[in-house]
Design a protein around this nucleic acid. Structure first.
Lengths: 140, 140
DNA sequence: TATTGTTATACTCTATAACTATA
DNA sequence: TATAGTTATAGAGTATAACAATA
């Protein structure tokens, strides 16, 4: 499928760029309110869904495993995450949120108003259309 | 306007998160292909539209002016950007792309296939609807 | 031998504060 | 005095390579 460079497509690309920029700002702001960096907030959010080995965090974040050591170190120092042994494989360390970490992750989600507040401007019908268009764009 | 937490809104938010993640990956990948960091690519892209004072770059990127010094240093060392005196104010340095920098910026834009390739999946009518919904979401 | 997590290293980005040269 | 850009500094994220413990 050939790339589109017509004015309408360029306008949509520009709008998506704006959405991306605003989403990122909002995310960093929400993280900073909890004195977390973006990377720390992303790891905590990930772990709040499901504890997982260090290596899998790296896969999810698409970065090198060695980076995760430091990020989890800082979350652990803050008492938001802990490392547990994996009973099935003693090489593996499972990173899991503490009760405090779970509460912080919930707070983070709650203060991420992006797309939720602006979405209120749209009717149910419009949100349905938007959902379907985004799904098509993402190759569903 | 109250935030929405219904399943449909949450689905749209999730989709937007996916769009944001994919956009960022694509951007970093395109920058890396030119041996540039994301920040360097953003500054170069900005300057390719219009030369500007160091301080204004910082405003556009929403970061501290002191950071721009290093980023422009590296772009200048690569021969992609140059600092010019501002004839109107000798305190100001205008950062401007070189011919090489302009070519690199054009290359970068061309290799940013995100949203352009997937957009081809949508008809003109659909892209128009998507544009209008995004504009509404972004508060026009 | 291969894998998991870590350490060591180097580079970049970031904010803060202090400095300089202009205005 | 105030402003533009820089420097110095410290913390964080990132990739690479080498290492210990375990598989």
């Amino acid at each position: 499928m050939a790339p589109r460079t017509d004015p309408l497509s360029l306008e949509v690309i520009e709008l998506i760029g704006t959405v991306v920029a605003r989403y990122y700002e909002e995310y960093e702001r929400a993280a900073a309110e909890h004195s977390l960096t973006g990377a720390q907030a992303r790891v905590l959010g990930l772990l709040s869904l499901e504890p997982m080995p260090m290596r899998r965090i790296a896969q999810k974040l698409k970065c090198e495993p060695s980076n995760i050591t430091g990020i989890v170190d800082r979350l652990e120092a803050r008492g938001l995450v802990e490392r547990r042994p994996d009973p099935l494989d003693r090489r593996v360390k499972l990173a899991a949120p503490t009760a405090d970490g779970l509460a912080t992750a919930a707070d983070l989600r709650a203060s991420l108003n992006f797309a939720r507040e602006p979405l209120a401007e749209l009717s149910t019908r419009e949100r349905t259309v938007l959902r379907d268009l985004l799904k098509r764009m993402l190759g569903d």
